[in-house]
Simulated assay, not measured.
Amino acid sequence: MNNQQGRDPTLPLWRAAVLLRVLTLLFALGVIIYHLDEYRRPWLALVMGGVMTVWTVVVAVRYLKPTEKLLAFTVFDLAVCCAVMTSSLLVLTPLQLEGEPVPLVPTVWVTGVVAAGAVAAGPVAGGVFGGVVAAFNYGVRGYVDTDLTRDLMLLVGVGFVLGLAAASSRRSAARLETALRTEAATAERERLARSIHDSVLQVLAHVRRRGGELGGDAAELAKLAGEQEVALRALVSSAPASTEDGAADLGARLKILETERVSVSVPATPVPLPAAAANELASAVREALANVGKHAGVTAKAWVLLEDLGSDIVVSVRDDGVGIAPGRVAAAEREGRMGIARSLRGRVAELGGSVTLETAPGEGVEWELRVPRERSGAK
């Protein structure tokens, strides 16, 4: 079920529902014995007492091992309880049904099914179960008065409140499971990040610096090492959602892309977005930085700025490279080079955002990625 130990978080409520069923059974059997000589059909009252006893054992076994597919059984449980209530038409005399205050055969035993329905399916089901039991109470009695209406209010109210408690337990267990899973994943990522930083990233950084100093073929190796360094940093940062509601901090996703040639500025406070949206934006930024490495020049530097404008999230990627000639982007798309069209514009468009490009030969390139918070699913 929905907690870290594989148990239904509502198991204590199920135990309480079973205990209620047992206690109310004992009370109902006592009422039957007390009024046995007064009934129109005493033998049928005893049979109904046996039915209630057997059914209490059945539901106790079933409810103490709850599963997610329990609603159908609780509906059948409701049918059994209503059938036992209806048997009062044959057991009690007309005077006992309509005049003298003699309880129906199951008396308070039927409240157990209201608790079961509430725990199984939530507040609405609990209220409905209570309403059905009260409706049968009205029907068997054949009249409406203050006492029966009071029973209706109590049954519906108890069902609704127990349903709220069960739903709250399941939500709390789900949040706890998510938090524990995220905590474990974060700890493991941090361990891997430390290990990678102390080994692979340092080697790649050394190759990038040394290759740049040597020039020639070594410069090409330096460029490749730099690209792999950025990719590896991004891989380490591509974590599961960092909060219980499935959100991730876009600032953390971008900050990890910082290198000697790339400066990243993010707000001091987290910029939460749904994990999928944060990953897509981070991937778009990586594509823009990859274009800097490919086309801006070996000495070009880049700056990434993240702004949280409330209704919009804006990420700017600027470099001081050679710039792009007019019409070159459109020509690249016509030639089948889909890096900008698919990886950058396509990712942002899927989030309902837009991409703006400002460039000129010799004046560098600036990409502005703007995504509306509402369309991205953030709150």
Rank of each mutant, 00 (worst) to 15 (best):
R15C: 08
T53K: 11
A115N: 01
L97Y: 04
V84S: 05
A72C: 15
V47G: 02
A115L: 09
V58W: 04
E98G: 10
W55D: 07
V113P: 04
A83V: 07
V75N: 00
A115D: 00
D37M: 15
V22S: 06
Q5E: 13
T56W: 09
W55K: 03
F73W: 08
L29K: 07
L20M: 10
L89A: 05
V51Q: 05
L97E: 01
T93A: 09
T107P: 03
L78G: 04
T111I: 02
T10M: 09
A60Q: 03
G99K: 11
P103G: 03
P94C: 06
V75I: 05
Q96Y: 04
C81G: 07
S87N: 10
G112C: 06
W109G: 10
G30N: 12
E98Q: 10
L95K: 10
R15I: 11
V58A: 11
G99R: 05
T111F: 04
V22R: 09
T107L: 08
L104V: 05
P103H: 07
D77R: 00
V102R: 02
G117P: 02
G112I: 02
R7P: 15
A72W: 08
T93P: 08
V110Y: 05
R40P: 02
L104R: 02
L26M: 15
L20F: 03
V58N: 05
V110S: 07
L25P: 12
R15Q: 05
T111Y: 00
V54L: 07
R7I: 15
A79E: 07
V84W: 00
Y34F: 15
V61H: 08
V22Y: 00
L92V: 13
L23S: 15
G99V: 13
A79D: 12
L89I: 05
V31A: 01
L46C: 03
A83R: 10
D37V: 15
L71S: 14
A45K: 05
W109L: 12
G49W: 07
T53H: 11
T86Y: 15
V57E: 07
Q5R: 13
R21T: 01
T24L: 06
L104A: 03
L44A: 02
G112E: 06
V91K: 00
Q96W: 02
Q5A: 09
Y39R: 10
V105L: 04
